[in-house]
Amino acid sequence: MCPLCAHPAQLRDNENAIDTLSVACMTCGKFSLPGLLFFTFFDFHNSESSEKALLRYLSGYTRHASERGEEIFLDVDNWNEFATAHANTSVATKLTRFLEIIAARSKPGKSGELDRTIDAPLLDAFDSDEVIFLAKTLHQRELIDYAGSDFYSLTAKGWEAIQSAGVNGIPGRCFVAMSFHDSLKDAYDNGIFLAVKNDCKMDPIRIDRVHHNEKICDKIVAEIRTCQFLIADVTLQRAGVYFEAGFAMGLGRQVIWTCRDDDLKNVHFDTRQYNHIVWKEPGDLRMQLADRIKATIPSTI
C-alpha cells in the first residue's frame, strides 16, 4: 500500500540506502522514504490529525516530481514543508491546471481523460470531490464540456482561454531562469521553489523540470509567454538566463533579478542597473525573494 494515499502500490527496498523503501504509485508517483517514516504515515491514516490531511498534498509534490522524472526522497525534515507548499495552491491555479491537462491530452473537437482520483494530485486537489467541483466550475464558465466519466473536452472558449494566456500571462505563474548546475540545486529547491510556492502561493516553472516533446527553445519561449513574471538568477552567468530575462521584459513581464554574493562582481554590465537580490545561502534567498514577490507582484489569492 502507498503510505501517502493508502492505495495499492509497488514497494521495494532501496538498494542505495539502508532501511529505505522505494514506492511506485499510480496516484502519487515514485518516491523513497525511510522505513520508520513509512509506518509513521500509516499511523496518520489511522488518526484524525492535521498530518493526515497533509498527506493528500504531499501526494501532489511527489506526483509532480515524478512527472518530471525525479524520484523524491522524503524524510522527517522535509515532508511537512513539501506538503504545505502544495496545500496553499489557489483555486485559480487549480482551474488553470485543469484546462492545461485537458489541452495536453486532447485536441479541438476531441476529449481527454482526467481521472478524478489518480490525477487529483496533479491539480493539488484534496480529493475527487474537489476535482468534481473544479470540473463543474469550468463547465459553468463554458470552458469545458463533459464527454463521459472523467473525460472532458475544451470548448472554443476553453481553447481561447489557454491560448490567450500568452498575451498577459497566467496569474500566479512564475518562470525561473537559472543555471541547472548541481551547485545551485539547493538554491532552487530550498530557496526559489519554497519562496514562490509556499510563501507566495504561486507556481514556479523551471524548464528542466517540465515534461515536453517540443524543441527546448520553443518550449522555453512558450512557457515565458504564459508566465506572469520571471525570476532570473544570474549566478554562474549563463547566457541563456540573460536571453530569457530579456525576452520576458520584451513581453512586458516583470523580472526579479537574483545573484549569489560571490558572483555579483561578474554580472553583465547591461543588467547591473537592475536591483538584484544578493543572497548567501538558500534560506536567505527564500526570505528576500518572498518579500520581493509580495511587494511587487499582484497576488492571485
Results as ranks from 00 to 15, higher is better:
132 I>H: 00
150 D>E: 15
91 V>Q: 14
237 Q>T: 06
112 G>A: 11
180 F>T: 10
129 D>N: 02
189 D>T: 02
158 G>F: 11
265 K>N: 15
167 V>D: 07
118 I>C: 03
219 K>A: 08
278 V>H: 04
192 I>Y: 13
202 M>V: 12
290 A>M: 13
28 C>K: 05
59 S>R: 01
9 A>P: 04
2 C>V: 01
201 K>S: 14
289 L>R: 13
45 H>C: 11
166 G>D: 03
268 H>F: 06
144 I>Y: 10
199 D>R: 10
234 V>N: 09
87 A>K: 07
105 R>Q: 12
243 F>H: 15
187 A>P: 01
252 G>M: 15
60 G>S: 12
297 I>R: 15
245 A>D: 05
77 D>E: 01
134 L>S: 03
52 K>R: 12
24 A>H: 01
22 S>W: 00
276 H>Y: 15
167 V>W: 03
216 I>N: 15
286 R>N: 14
218 D>I: 06
110 K>H: 10
173 R>P: 06
244 E>Q: 15
286 R>E: 15
263 D>L: 14
163 Q>I: 04
137 T>L: 02
163 Q>W: 03
138 L>N: 13
88 N>I: 11
209 R>D: 08
10 Q>G: 01
290 A>Y: 12
161 A>E: 04
177 A>N: 10
276 H>T: 12
189 D>Q: 05
222 A>H: 03
222 A>M: 07
35 G>M: 07
231 I>T: 05
97 R>A: 06
299 S>P: 05
68 R>G: 04
292 R>C: 08
301 I>N: 13
94 K>F: 10
92 A>G: 13
210 V>Q: 11
286 R>Q: 15
40 T>F: 07
38 F>N: 09
170 I>R: 11
94 K>L: 03
46 N>W: 02
117 T>G: 00
254 Q>W: 06
68 R>M: 04
61 Y>D: 00
138 L>T: 13
108 P>R: 07
152 Y>T: 04
53 A>N: 15
125 A>L: 03
113 E>F: 08
63 R>S: 03
34 P>M: 00
25 C>P: 07
202 M>A: 15
57 Y>V: 02
115 D>M: 03
20 T>A: 10
26 M>K: 09
208 D>P: 15
12 R>M: 07
189 D>N: 06
286 R>W: 14
200 C>W: 11
156 A>I: 09
268 H>Q: 07
138 L>S: 13
106 S>P: 04
204 P>L: 08
190 N>C: 05
74 L>M: 12
208 D>G: 13
92 A>C: 03
210 V>N: 11
204 P>C: 08
202 M>I: 11
136 K>F: 09
233 D>R: 13
19 D>Q: 09
28 C>V: 01
97 R>K: 11
143 L>E: 03
106 S>K: 04
164 S>M: 07
112 G>P: 11
144 I>F: 09
54 L>N: 08
5 C>G: 14
126 F>A: 10
64 H>W: 07
182 D>V: 01
58 L>M: 00
213 N>Y: 14
276 H>G: 15
99 L>R: 14
57 Y>M: 00
70 E>K: 05
239 A>V: 04
59 S>E: 09
291 D>F: 09
122 L>I: 00
161 A>Y: 10
98 F>K: 07
255 V>I: 07
96 T>W: 15
255 V>E: 05
289 L>F: 11
5 C>K: 10
78 N>H: 09
92 A>H: 09
213 N>H: 14
203 D>G: 02
278 V>P: 06
260 R>T: 00
